[in-house]
């Protein structure tokens, strides 16, 4: 049986529409206008115990709303949700003991207090037995490198340190399910990979099930077993990460800036030029995997006066666009400038 079951979940919000212009503003003081926004519109998926599943979508696609419905924060308008066999709404408090939640944008730690104080409080309210608490805390301290942070007030932590402490706080009571809402947002590359490694390690060690929302493709590639992509409240695609990336984001981008105008054509095997702003800049799409990116990079560096070179993943918006277009050409032609 799946540990998380979502069937035809839907959820709408009513938002106030402000007037524009002084007259409309005055009028709105007497008659406010509302409109309904369907945040989640018939979403279904299953997650088995021990899986790490990425929940993807652009901003406003309905990711956070889904997570809030699963965590018992919001009551769905329609459909059914079961997490660890519980109904998140009717059995919110029982469920709370079995899940851990991290909102990347908003800390659960006490702002003015040392991290350790929050941990002590959480121990008490989750009624974690002292010996189990100690071993869990030791493990988390080790895995997340918290030893030096525990006695620093949260407001003095960097974002990366804070997110690490928040992850520990969400895992202290040994939950069966972790909901991570944009856990890597705004982090630098090193902290991101640190966080990803932690999630993988903790899954291996405890068998916890993880649902994480993100709009970072690297999170998926390095962390997730499966993914669900939603857009405008609907599931656009669900499948394994490898298959998805292969089908819908088969490229990484190489952006090059040359030191001088390159006359004539630059031919790069295995790569396709997508944009050239002028004679100095070139953007190439290179197939994902098999060391193609490395080959292209060294090819460029060997033959051309390269001033700057950057590798990026396509954005989730690109993937969604490709999904809508249902097309993805193979990079079989050499690039021309």
């Amino acid at each position: 049986m799946a540990l998380i079951e979502v069937r035809e979940l839907s959820k709408a919000f009513r938002v106030r529409r402000p007037g524009s212009g002084a007259r409309a503003k005055v009028a709105r003081m007497f008659h406010p206008a509302y409109e309904t926004r369907q945040a989640v519109d018939g979403v279904s998926f299953d997650i088995d115990g021990g899986e790490i599943v990425g929940y993807l979508g652009a901003n406003g696609a309905g990711k956070s709303t889904t997570v809030k419905c699963l965590a018992g924060i919001l009551v769905p308008d329609g459909g059914t949700v079961r997490v660890a066999g519980l109904d998140p709404v009717r059995e919110r408090i029982r469920l709370a003991r079995r899940i851990g939640v991290v909102f990347g944008q908003k800390t659960a730690l006490w702002w003015d207090l040392p991290v350790a104080e929050t941990f002590t409080l959480l121990r008490a309210i989750y009624e974690v037995p002292p010996d189990r608490y100690r071993t869990t805390l030791d493990t988390l301290t080790e895995l997340l490198g918290l030893a030096d942070l525990l006695h620093i007030p949260v407001r003095q932590l960097s974002l990366g340190q804070r997110v690490r402490a928040d992850l520990a706080a969400a895992f202290l009571h040994g939950p069966d399910v972790l909901f991570l809402d944009e856990p890597t947002i705004g982090l630098d590359a090193m902290v991101k990979s640190n966080v990803r490694r932690f999630i993988k390690d903790i899954r291996t060690a405890s068998g916890v099930t993880v649902l994480l929302t993100t709009h970072d493709l690297a999170d998926l590639e390095q962390l997730c077993d499966r993914l669900v992509i939603i857009d405008r409240g609907r599931v656009l695609f669900a499948g394994s990460v490898e298959e998805t990336l292969h089908r819908f984001a088969p490229y990484v981008r190489v952006m090059v800036e040359f030191a001088e105008d390159i006359a004539g054509s630059v031919r790069v095997p295995q790569a396709r030029a997508t944009a050239t702003a002028d004679g100095r800049h070139l953007t190439l799409e290179v197939p994902r995997g098999d060391g193609a990116a490395a080959a292209v990079t060294s090819y460029l560096l060997d033959r051309f006066p390269v001033r700057d070179l950057r590798l990026t993943d396509p954005s989730i918006e690109d993937v969604v666009r490709v999904l809508y277009e249902g097309a993805s050409g193979a990079p079989d032609e050499p690039a021309h400038v």
Partner: peptide
């Protein structure tokens, strides 16, 4: 004027 009318309830 925008400031004064930004919030309906505040005005009342």
């Amino acid at each position: 004027i925008e400031q004064q009318t930004a919030y309906r309830a505040a005005y009342w």
